[in-house]
Amino acid sequence: MSLHEWMLDGTLGLLVLILAVAVLHVRSLYISIVLFIAFGLLLALIWARLGAPDLALAEAAIGAGLTGTLLLAAYGRVSERRRKAEEPLDWHAGPALLLSLIIAVILMRAVWPLPDLDSALVPAVADQMAQSGVGHPVTAVLLSFRAWDTLLELLVLLLAFMAVRQLLPSLPRQPEAWPLLQAWSRLLAPLSVLIGGYLLWRGSADPGGAFQAGALLAAGAILLRLTGLLPALGWHHFWIRALILGGCMVFLAIGVAGYWLGTGFLGYADGWAGPLILLIEVFATLSIATTLTLLVIGETREVRE
């Protein structure tokens, strides 16, 4: 590896580490959250550096963007008294620090021989790519080879949403939207739909896919909702429920149909793989987008029954 590559990697690594320490150590919770968002963006750069553009997209949209929004929203709801009582990490904690250091050293010992080894799954994926129905290996793994993981993951998202929903609604004060922000969101929201759709479509051949697209769509919807350009969204609308549940339902239905028709549970019949995967991805994208939107902005009207 050449020197300037090392300089890049070294700088990125050092920055990430410093940011992580600062996130835990800095006194104000607000600054800690802001630094954490910067930490996420740097991670996205590292993923791109390590040849994982899918992850860079996902990290920037989900890891840094939406997690940051959620953290800031939570910060906004925490009372002033609680903010004052913030306690950062102090370094006087001898035993815990020592324990973590020892663990880190042991783990370094464990990862030491790993760079020279190889994975049996890389050639296996390459072998089966032709049958997978899509051209991009990551999408093939997500929706063909390990579709069951992806289905369960949609259920995890659904479950998180249900869990959040049953907690008592804690509504933040909605400030009046400023005209400039409204104008800019009017421009950005269609753009996010366009780029989301593009990412979804492109996902079958190149980096991109349902999760990245869903996160982008959600970002657009959140912006519109915050500027008051979108009506209140709530679980009590049938179509919202249909959108949220649609991803899992279509996925499960296609999986069971595969078993029924003899191509195996979550298997696709010859020649149908491409269209079926696209169908699943479209529903999954809509479902992810709606769920993430509601997770961030919450419900505005529903009261506990």
Binding site: A124, V125, Q128, S144, F145, W148, G258, G267
Partner: peptide
């Protein structure tokens, strides 16, 4: 055993 999606073992769940 049931290989999900009928993919061969090291690949499938």
């Amino acid at each position: 055993w049931l290989e999900l999606g009928d993919w061969p073992p090291p690949l499938a769940i």
